[in-house]
Design a binder for these strands. Structure first.
Ligand SMILES: NC(=O)c1ccc[n+]([C@@H]2O[C@H](COP(=O)([O-])OP(=O)(O)OC[C@H]3O[C@@H](n4cnc5c(N)ncnc54)[C@H](O)[C@@H]3O)[C@@H](O)[C@H]2O)c1
Ligand SMILES: NC(=O)c1ccc[n+]([C@@H]2O[C@H](COP(=O)([O-])OP(=O)(O)OC[C@H]3O[C@@H](n4cnc5c(N)ncnc54)[C@H](O)[C@@H]3O)[C@@H](O)[C@H]2O)c1
Lengths: 221, 221
DNA sequence: ATCTAATAAAGAAAAAAATCTTTATATATT
DNA sequence: AATATATAAAGATTTTTTTCTTTATTAGAT
């Protein structure tokens, strides 16, 4: 692959990338209601965020809007989905079919966002051989062989944090290039491997801290 | 803002607040190994982040370190925990005892981070009356009364996104002040209610996009 | 005791992101 | 057709966050 028709390697910022799925979710609901065009100010008002921010975010996807009209909602959704790669169905292996892992296997919507969990792996004999939502749970010792043969590049990590690093080492050795890390561990990986941390703790912390700050500011007044 | 008297309202930034739990997790592991003092450069190297950033983050909690020595690890952990309010055991209700909700109920570690789920609520008859990890699942129609009587201020929201807003309205009407929103919906709430969104989608998106960008940059060379 | 090296702490600079401002354009209204 | 207006788009400004520098302090070495 070469020569992108539009060498505009937009390189969207992280904050923008995080906001786009939210817009998309809202836009899909709006489209279901039969809306054909939508403007940035409307999106901003509905999602309680700055309208110029919305314009800027949408602009990074390359979509064009028309003054006084807004954006064609169908075109907008298509453009965002394509920009984010949601139409690619990236295949992933889930590792650690425990409480959280099983919940994620049961969740059909990830596929709509471009992630398809095609198999799960565990070391617990009780889990192996079972399946959930059509996804089979296999023994961990099959991981390396299957990852290579099926050329799976993405792993979803939901093992106990105590084994997170050793499992990660195996994933990397198996050619995994991107890890979605749901454990609280800070994984050590080679340069070329991408890690996306989803820290529940960070979110709990932020919530509790905001509440605490609210209390303090009220008690001061 | 005005008059910053001795009010040490440090007002830590969001990025700082998100990094602190990670430091804490690492520090606890280090303490378990018998380490007594630790320096910012060591933490930074281990967690692959900038050492001066670590110093700045730790400084916001008010802890003091000593040149050439570093921080007393016990004091450091205590200070961070107290700063983040982890020793408060904030009580919360979980709403929507489905796949994700059940997983969260089974997860004992939240309590270590200051969040204690004391009851769960659902509308599904099959769920009601059951319990998980000692947390009872009650009917949603008991929510309002219990929230008021027990003075629970925090709700964890894990219902289907289709009902997220209507459930939220009930939570707010019941006096809930902070909502940890695990659904993809953008909740509409009054000014005084705090919402913390944990969007799995945003994280998937970021991961897939990074992988995509890596592919593109490689194909360009 | 004195010197050296490591490191916390404070401050400055740079980078990134969000917000605000201006401009241009297309549509609806008159 | 002319005008007013909403809004996308581009640019400027401000704010926030990160990174870089400098300074001061302290343990350990000489
Ligand atoms: N449950 C939650 O709500 C929640 C929330 C936030 C974070 N997490 C994190 O997610 C991870 C999983 O949590 P959980 O509650 O699902 O735990 P869990 O114990 O229910 O599940 C872990 C699974 O991993 C499997 N496993 C253990 N060692 C393995 C190995 N070497 N290789 C492959 N599989 C292995 C276990 O058999 C088990 O099925 C933990 O790191 C936890 O910190 C969970
Ligand atoms: N499962 C996952 O891994 C995952 C990942 C990301 C986001 N989410 C989000 O989390 C939410 C829950 O997902 P899930 O997979 O657990 O779904 P689920 O269907 O398994 O669970 C939803 C639960 O909410 C209950 N419920 C429905 N209406 C209710 C009401 N009005 N009041 C109280 N309870 C009600 C249902 O009975 C059910 O038990 C969804 O919004 C989903 O988008 C889930």
């Amino acid at each position: 692959m070469e020569a992108p028709q539009n060498t505009k390697r937009t390189k969207a910022s992280e904050p923008t990338l995080k906001r786009l799925p939210r817009y998309l979710h809202y836009l899909q609901k709006a489209q279901d209601k039969g809306i054909l065009t939508i403007s940035a100010p409307v999106i901003g008002k509905e999602l309680q965020c700055d309208p110029t921010q919305v314009v800027k975010d949408l602009a990074t996807t390359g979509v064009k809007g028309r003054p006084r009209i807004g954006y064609n909602i169908h075109e907008l959704i298509q453009t965002i989905e394509s920009f984010l790669g949601y139409n690619r169905a990236n295949e992933a292996f889930l590792v650690g079919a425990g409480n959280l892992g099983m919940a994620m296997m049961s969740y059909p919507d990830f596929q709509r966002f471009g992630l398809k969990i095609v198999a799960a792996f565990d070391t617990n004999r009780d889990k192996i051989g079972r399946s959930r939502s059509g996804i089979n749970i296999l023994h961990m010792n099959k991981f390396q062989d299957l990852a290579r043969r099926l050329q799976v590049r993405i792993a979803v990590l939901t093992v106990p944090h105590t084994v997170a690093q050793e499992v990660t080492d195996l994933l990397v050795a198996s050619g995994i290039e991107a890890i979605w890390n749901l454990t609280p561990s800070q994984l050590q990986v080679p340069e070329h491997v991408i890690v996306q941390n989803t820290s529940m703790y960070a979110n709990v912390t932020l919530l509790l801290k905001k509440l605490q700050e609210k209390d303090e500011s009220e008690s001061v007044q």
